[in-house]
Amino acid sequence: MARIVVITSGKGGVGKTTTSAAIATGLALRGHKTAVIDFDVGLRNLDLIMGCERRVVYDFINVINGDANLKQALIRDKRVDNLYILPASQTRDKDALTQEGVEQVLNELSEDFDFIVCDSPAGIERGALMAAYFADEAIVVTNPEVSSVRDSDRILGILASKTRRVEQGGDPIEGRLLLTRYSAERAERGEMLNIEDVGEILAIDLLGVIPESQAVLTASNAGQPVVLDQESDAGQAYLDAVARFLGEECPLRFVDVPKKSLFGRLFKG
């Protein structure tokens, strides 16, 4: 049985797809057979971030509709063993994402994968609800910024009530916070919500903090999940988050401002 994890946020542009690609690749690098599914029907982008856009033949909706089987639609990553991508469809018909269809695909994947990472679209429409419905756990991607935090709280409300687990009378799924685009300098100057502020408002466990980093854009330009750039701060921070996700103790990094010399403190603002 696979563990199904949804990467969600409510707000768009906070780093869900970057995170889905990074976490899925990180899990595969650790030897776990992992599938990452793009639930953003009509606006697929996971294929670009994973660098497999030219290898897409069939997609998620094709599999649901029976036009192709899973084996035909899954794209095997060329860089990392055990990593597979199921792209979203470009069709504009979002109703094609039926609950029964999604369940069937997840059940079939569950048989021989360890992890299924569901890349949720922004918003609280069908795609987002379907990405979350079957999840065993959630990673809530949040920027230290008011609209992102508010939308994350909204999504936490949905996770608490609209999942299969809850509807079957089980406990709500656990959502953990991944704070992305964090700038320790700006937080220290009081220009940005800090880790404690966001943690206090959302009241969920912290999975990780990803620093604002040029490596993220560079990686997406090249179609490389950022964890493959193991020199980069963001890549390392994501690998730390993967370790914590797997239950390992791992102290936070890239969250403190390097101490300046007295001279620097006096003359640089």
Binding site: G157, L193, I201
Partner: peptide, 18 residues
């Protein structure tokens, strides 16, 4: 500090929406 303003505004709106 603007971060404090952000935090206070969020605490109020989030409590209300919850």
């Amino acid at each position: 500090k603007s971060a404090n303003v952000a935090k206070e505004r969020l605490q109020i709106i989030v409590a209300r929406e919850r």
